[in-house]
């Protein structure tokens, strides 16, 4: 990984030159929140944005898309929306979220729909100073060592720019004149100072070691029913979580009855019909069971399988759940309360 510097005043010029690679997307305001949107005017980018309503997973597994068109004797996959894209402004937690999706969708059973979109996209990270809903330090996802093509770290009136891939190197070369390759000891000092500042700003700090044990011991806890009484089963917590990846598919016939599309859309384990199987049995009919599954996935099963939680600490569930059920509350309750054994 190599480091360069870019003057802040040159950022817009550089963003402009990125458009020669493909469509440029970044965070823009929506009301009091932010969303990733296409940046036709680079000055629209919201550099102050912390979390967008939906995480960048929406680019790689769109909430709803057509997998293929079928007719009586053939099918044709639909990749109309797959085109070269640059995503600018991903914070470390979201890059970690994408790396988790990569493990799920590219490793054992590669998902062509995910892969095509992923391969066409360049990822440019951006450093951030946490707010009171960020908990990425607890999940150890507050910094990135990979998973990006370029990563911008704000440092006074400059950005320190990490090049994380050969594509990143190509992207720098789109406008090489703007970059400065001379890094000195002062830059290192400034960077270390910035890191200390960032780390000191976390308000949510949890020790997650041994979380699978705690989850196991809490299996019969009353907590799940208490949460279930409040939970609206609206599924919003799954939709906004950068690592939730469940989906459902259905065939939608054309009126000709001879052709149609296979459609795929996001699903959520909070949905009552999620674990309903043919024959009518529902493995998780009770809301308490479903909540337990959600948090087992985040804090236990994923750790056992992949050695890290599948929560990247982005704080979106904290920002989204209408009845204030979120990963921080659950961890607090699990670690604070007496658990039945």
């Amino acid at each position: 990984m190599k480091a360069l510097k870019l003057k802040k005043e040159d950022l817009y010029a550089y963003l402009e030159s990125l458009k020669s690679y493909g469509e440029l997307w970044g965070p823009v305001p929506r009301g009091e929140r932010y969303v990733y949107a296409r940046l036709t005017n680079v000055r629209e980018v919201a550099l102050q944005a912390l979390r967008t309503i939906l995480p960048p997973k929406k680019f790689f597994v769109p909430p709803r898309f057509n997998m293929f068109r079928y007719s009586e004797d053939r099918y044709t996959e639909v990749f109309d929306d797959v085109k070269p894209r640059v995503l600018f402004g991903l914070h470390p937690c979201d890059i970690h979220g994408l790396m988790i999706l990569d493990e799920l969708f590219l490793e054992r059973f590669p998902d062509p729909y995910y892969r095509k979109r992923r391969e066409a996209t360049a990822i440019i990270g951006l450093s951030c100073i946490p707010d009171d809903k960020c908990m990425a330090r607890s999940t150890n996802t507050h910094a990135v060592e990979g998973g990006f093509d370029l990563a911008f770290n704000e440092l006074g009136d400059e950005y320190l720019v990490w090049v994380g891939s050969s594509l990143g190197d190509d992207l720098v070369r789109l406008n090489l004149d703007l970059f400065n390759e001379e890094i000195d000891a002062q830059d290192l000092q400034k960077y270390l100072e910035w890191r200390r500042k960032r780390d000191s700003r976390y308000k949510l700090n949890f020790d997650l070691t041994g979380m699978p044990d705690i989850m196991e011991l809490s299996w019969d806890s009353d907590l799940w029913q208490e949460l279930a009484d409040k939970c609206l089963a609206c599924g919003a917590c799954s939709m906004v979580c950068p690592t939730c990846n469940c989906y459902n598919i259905r065939d939608v016939s054309d009126l000709s009855l001879e052709s149609g599309v296979r459609e795929r859309h996001w699903d959520s384990c909070m949905n009552k019909e999620y674990a309903l199987v043919a024959g009518g049995h529902n493995f998780r009919e009770a809301r308490a069971e479903r909540l337990k599954l959600y948090y087992t996935h985040k804090l236990k099963a994923f750790i056992t399988e992949y050695g890290k939680p599948s929560c990247v600490g982005c704080g979106r569930c904290i920002d989204t759940c209408p009845v204030n059920i979120n990963v921080a509350e659950v961890i607090r309750a699990l670690k604070g309360q007496e658990v039945k054994v």
Binding site: P63, R64, L232, C234, A236, M239, S253, L257, W266
Partner: peptide
């Protein structure tokens, strides 16, 4: 028309509302 059962959306409005990235 094809003699198949009809499974309609089981989500509440909030799910699609998040897909559409509305402020809540």
């Amino acid at each position: 028309a094809k003699g198949m059962p009809v499974e309609l959306t089981t989500f509440p409005v909030c799910a699609e509302c998040k897909w559409n990235e509305n402020e809540c």
